[in-house]
Design a protein around this nucleic acid. Structure first.
Lengths: 220, 220
DNA sequence: CTTGACGGCTAATTTAAATTAGCCTATAAT
DNA sequence: ATTATAGGCTAATTTAAATTAGCCGTCAAG
């Protein structure tokens, strides 16, 4: 990774930990292993570093619009999978979604940075909302819609069902962002959540089969 | 309200909008209607203003530990109410919780400030988590536990049930904090969420009675 | 009625951090 | 082999914001 890129990378790390205003260009430089004035060979000023990060974020968000998908496959393929989804696969969906958000290095740092900086700039607040609220709800809503049509799940209100699936995941995510030590606990809660979700929304017949006595586990 | 208090108040407003580092003491002073140096007659420095806000926050949090309750009554009284709660009352519970968090002026500004500043200071992150995640979950968990014992609701896992109740409320709250224009939509979603929650978790017999044909509304 | 402390002001001063100036070296292209 | 450029450095300089100095009017207590 060249210096210019490393500056972005280290800056993002620092911004995500302390927020833009609390990071000095000297801090960024030090991490990169150069002196502050050398940064200016690469970026016009501190703001330009921030802007470049946001630009990269937008690029990645676009590119990874597919990352919410179960396998990275496209929506049409996913749809096929979801029509016949099992409880274990639903748990996998939840876990993948959660772990992707939690562990993907860029995603995690971007999210934390946006959490801090969102109130400076309407655009950032909008980006946060789109990426972590509206897009997941709408994509998952679409998938759950398919599952309802195909009879795997049943509900009178797919949007609320989707909220019931995603809101706990979102909340667990905000917990882990603040306190990474709670990750293990959060993963357990995740699994219990998805199991209960499935029990609540699965079609009754299927419900009868699946509710009791099954070896749980298997998260991957 | 005397000057000393007004400083705290205006500072909190500004900190909640822009974050500590982006607010100048001159901004605070201007809003109070004095000049920056006059602030120093009341507080040692900028940090002392922030600290005083946090201190006041802690005091209020303590004092308002009861604010999550349905009527401001204490837990024992609440317990009686909850044993016989109806769907409409559950909606009222959700709405009250949500509207309290959303509209109480101090609560709202504190929360937004904590959202921004939490990453500077482990203590603030902890305060945020306690106030907006762990305490609500534990208090509501207790109430739902009572409702399960008394047979109003049924579940095998009260904690997850509580998460299913509160996580959507939490998420709607974060939406409104970022974009107050979505409040109306959020309130509708809230009600639909609680209705569906009730349908999912209500005892079956009760379920049969309540599910269909009832005049909805009535939020207060 | 006078005094002292409270709370305001303007005009410095300090401080911390960003940014610029200007120099040096290595390397890659002519 | 020369030279231009990229990218590093140290030593200023600038800038913005916090903070301090020191003055003044009001008003309540003695």
């Amino acid at each position: 990774m060249d210096t210019k890129q490393r500056i972005l990378d280290e800056a993002l790390t620092l911004f995500s930990e302390k927020g833009y205003a609390n990071v000095f260009v000297a801090d960024i430089a030090e991490r990169v292993g150069i002196k502050a004035p050398s940064l200016y060979k690469h970026y016009k000023n501190k703001q330009a570093i921030f802007d470049a990060i946001i630009e990269e974020m937008n690029r990645r968000f676009l590119e990874e619009a597919g990352a919410l998908k179960i396998n990275g496959a496209d929506a049409a393929e996913d749809a096929e999978i979801y029509k016949h989804i099992s409880e274990e696969q639903l748990i996998t969906l939840g876990n993948n979604l959660f772990l992707y958000f939690l562990h993907d290095d860029y995603t995690r740092r971007f999210r934390k940075m946006l959490t801090i900086e969102q109130f400076h700039d309407k655009k950032l607040a909008a980006a946060y909302m789109k990426q972590y609220v509206d897009d997941p709800l709408s994509y998952q809503g679409m998938l759950f819609g398919l599952m309802v049509s195909s009879g795997v799940l049943q509900t009178e209100n797919v949007e609320i069902m989707t909220l019931h699936f995603y809101a706990p995941i979102y909340m667990l995510l905000t917990i882990c962002d603040r306190d990474p030590e709670r990750e293990k606990e959060a993963l357990k809660t995740m699994e219990a959540h998805v199991r209960q979700f499935n029990k609540l929304y699965a079609r009754d017949e299927k419900n009868m089969q699946n509710n009791k006595r099954r070896s749980p586990r298997r998260t991957k």
